[in-house]
Amino acid sequence: MMNNLKIKTIEEFLNEGISPEILFWVGCAGSFDDRAKKITKAFVKILNSANISFGVLGKDESCTGDPAKRAGNEFLFQMQAMTNIEVLNSFDIKTIVTTCPHCFNTLKNEYPDLGGNYKVYHHTQFINKLLEEGRFSIEGGSYKGKKITYHDPCFLGRANNEYNAPRNLIKKIDAELAELKRCKSKALCCGAGGAQMFKESEKGKTEINLERAEEIKKNTSKIVATGCPFCNTMLTDGAKSFEADKQVEVLDIAELIVRAKDL
């Protein structure tokens, strides 16, 4: 290992006869996308710092099938789902935490019908749980008093009604939460969902991520927080055209915590 992150696969745990507390479902973006890999590492730093025993699937992990399902390919989705469920059940997985709201939604809401019943957390929910249980703490840090804009990912917010977990963490780092005009249940999509991430958009007068970026620009905060690797990509791209003095940094909540605590 190149760095000092402590990572073990579920298989390694089982070979030692231990079952870890949680499975960290890394997701395709978290595994392969250069930007999202940083989010994965940030979350692992948090898990390590809180001494959470977690395993990853590594080469046994595969796409949940969400983009296929929302593109209309229910066959491929269910093939993926059933194969994943076989793997998860063979490792006797009970609790899954993921940094991707799309994986989160699919694992939580669409796998049970097909025989996959797990307790599924988005990482912002899990970090809140650790805070409540006193296993992790966030106090102040480098973002104290700074203005942070939060963008709700559709699949965490509207889809699963989770608006508070990420906001609570922004408050914990003592930052000032700057809400967008369209927020929570009225939040505007970043443009990536429903398999749009993987195709050119249809003809229109602008791109969805540019529309959202314009709204972000009006908020005049230098940092945009979100909880989804796809939103992260779309908003980063959308904000590229901002004037030099209006540049923003798009960060995942996990990255904010790592920086605030200097982990």
């Binding site: 290992m1 992150l5 392969f32 994965t40 590594g58 080469k59 992990e61």
Partner: peptide, 9 residues
């Protein structure tokens, strides 16, 4: 798929 854990490198 074999490279799924390479994010840590």
């Amino acid at each position: 798929q074999q490279d799924r854990l390479n994010w840590n490198e």
